[in-house]
Nucleic acid binder design. Sequence first.
DNA 1: GAGTAAACGAGACGGTACGTCAAGTCTTGGC
DNA 2: GCCAAGACTTGACGTACCGTCTCGTTTACTC
Lengths: 198, 198, 198, 198
Amino acid sequence: MATVTDQPTPARPGRRRSQESRLAILTAAIELAGEVGYAGLTIEGIAARSGAGKQTIYRWWPSKADVLLDALATKADLHVPIPDEGSYAADLRAFLAATFRLGRDRRVVDALRALMAHAQLDEEFQQRFRSAFLQRRRDALGIILDRARTRGDLPPIPSPGTAADLVFGVIWYRMLATSQPVDENLIDELVFTLAEPR
Amino acid sequence: MATVTDQPTPARPGRRRSQESRLAILTAAIELAGEVGYAGLTIEGIAARSGAGKQTIYRWWPSKADVLLDALATKADLHVPIPDEGSYAADLRAFLAATFRLGRDRRVVDALRALMAHAQLDEEFQQRFRSAFLQRRRDALGIILDRARTRGDLPPIPSPGTAADLVFGVIWYRMLATSQPVDENLIDELVFTLAEPR
Amino acid sequence: MATVTDQPTPARPGRRRSQESRLAILTAAIELAGEVGYAGLTIEGIAARSGAGKQTIYRWWPSKADVLLDALATKADLHVPIPDEGSYAADLRAFLAATFRLGRDRRVVDALRALMAHAQLDEEFQQRFRSAFLQRRRDALGIILDRARTRGDLPPIPSPGTAADLVFGVIWYRMLATSQPVDENLIDELVFTLAEPR
Amino acid sequence: MATVTDQPTPARPGRRRSQESRLAILTAAIELAGEVGYAGLTIEGIAARSGAGKQTIYRWWPSKADVLLDALATKADLHVPIPDEGSYAADLRAFLAATFRLGRDRRVVDALRALMAHAQLDEEFQQRFRSAFLQRRRDALGIILDRARTRGDLPPIPSPGTAADLVFGVIWYRMLATSQPVDENLIDELVFTLAEPR
DNA sequence: GAGTAAACGAGACGGTACGTCAAGTCTTGGC
DNA sequence: GCCAAGACTTGACGTACCGTCTCGTTTACTC
């Protein structure tokens, strides 16, 4: 039965988007970012490596940052599962551990640093980066905090919003400013500071 | 008697560095960054605006980020005074309030965001940015933390290093990721979370 | 009775060529050439203006010059009648006057200039342009010259071929090199120079 | 002694134009035009072949046609000497013979055809082509015609202007429309038609 | 009336060159 | 030796069209 949401196949005329090209472009972007760094990454380079025409890239992505973001979303598993571990402390610990694991992949970390950097230089990309990446992470943590509040597990201070700022703040600060990734020790201190009842 | 610090007059032959040019360049950099944004800032633009030759800029600064960093250090008052307020909580509150005031100047915040971004894309600048800016701020907070430890005022968890990461983490995260600056409310929550004895 | 030239109905299967499309394309070509000039004329532009697909154009014409040549032949009356005026001088005068009239239409002159230009840059189009246009005009003048020779009206020098070169030479030279069209005065001088017995 | 016309050295600051680059560009343009034809000639190709940057070409010439025109003027001897041969007929014959010789060089003829073509597609280049080439040739013939008039050697019809149109008309028409160059026979017919007293 | 075949509109594709911008370097004459 | 001026090579930008290649649709003929 056809419904209103059957939009993926609106029977448009014209040639369909090539999935071969799309994937070749995303793969080339990831590889090149790893080889020459984000600063050395160019649309021309991606086009050359992937065998696509530049226009094909510009047709679907507004900037090299968008290509890389799409590549990351498509190729890297950025998903953070949030199983109910029974307590705020345990949930938070699980969340941080998952992030910890992600942070061990140098290529992913470098790409995220570059995307955050690009977001500071490109107003419009900043919007996309926030809604496509940053906000999703925040929402995941938001679920944990909500659950804790329901449980009566959540300290009154800091407020959920500030707690999220503290968690993501350390993570990003270490990535951007000190090259010191999230480690086991940090997890302990964070859990104690945020989840320990007073 | 000549000493090691007598560097301004090493009695070299040839024309001395022009302070007029230096200041004109720094002023032009600040102004242009405000007008066209960091992404639109170019060495050529700075040279044209300041009336300097490009070579003069390249002779003294390695990149546009360094010009802007120098301009910020020279023109904006980035100094954070750390008077002894009698307690860790009060010192921390004073430190955050000073940062709060700094964050009200849009132009300074934008410049800092851009410099942090540039640091992600330029390995060598990252070193200079860390030692010339990030580490200095950290050192200032370090004094407060040291003083608190001496006083016996400092909670055992989080450790001083992590406390600094938490403080600078929130500040930078809000600047870079949420466009939500440090405000009075955040100060209260941070002071409570970090300085309240358990 | 079917003859060799009855090509429009070879009883092939499949959809027939659309005359609507053909005319829409030729019209669009003429209009666009007038609006944006030949240099600004593109197959994509013709397709967009006419509502045709690019493939439809490429199916029937090898280049934009061929489209324009076809358009000119179809829409503009390029025919030069050569009624017998009784003498070489009168025939030549009539021929030149007809050409004169044609040259008053700016759009036709511009299109011819562009086609002649294109013929210099595209070897294959040059062949088609010669046989479809230049040679036809030459043949028309050839009839006049033949008639004059039969009449004994034709001066021995210049030879018919050279006479044609002289006639078309001035016309094209004025179009291409001096923007000065054929006018009454030129007609007088040409007729005197070529047709006056010595 | 310095005079008002000593303009070549106005003591401007800044680096001087590189004659090495200029000549390398002109040479590359001539060579490439010969190898790939004018239609295949590109600014990028000239830059690559000459070792110059594209910007250097765009700085000094507005289009590839201007490069080629300059190259032709610089490298090919396009000068037509007009010694006084004693009579209009002899002068005209000498002029045509010189042109005849020029027309034997395939590369020069092809370049001129292309430039004339380009002039039809580019309004501004047309102005430059006329004053830098076409008008100069016309002026040379003008001297011959003036001399003839002074001598009383010049037939009243056609007028000098029309005579020039006829001469250059045939030459260009043969180059552009019939691929049949000026030859000895044409010279005889032209001299007879234009210079023979009636 | 069910194939089958071609032309049609639309539009994505790999390319090439465009003309521009800025980078960082080099060369000039003057201070 | 520093300075302003400005030409230099280099390399990427984002755009415009090229000519080709699917798509699904429409129109004709053949069986």
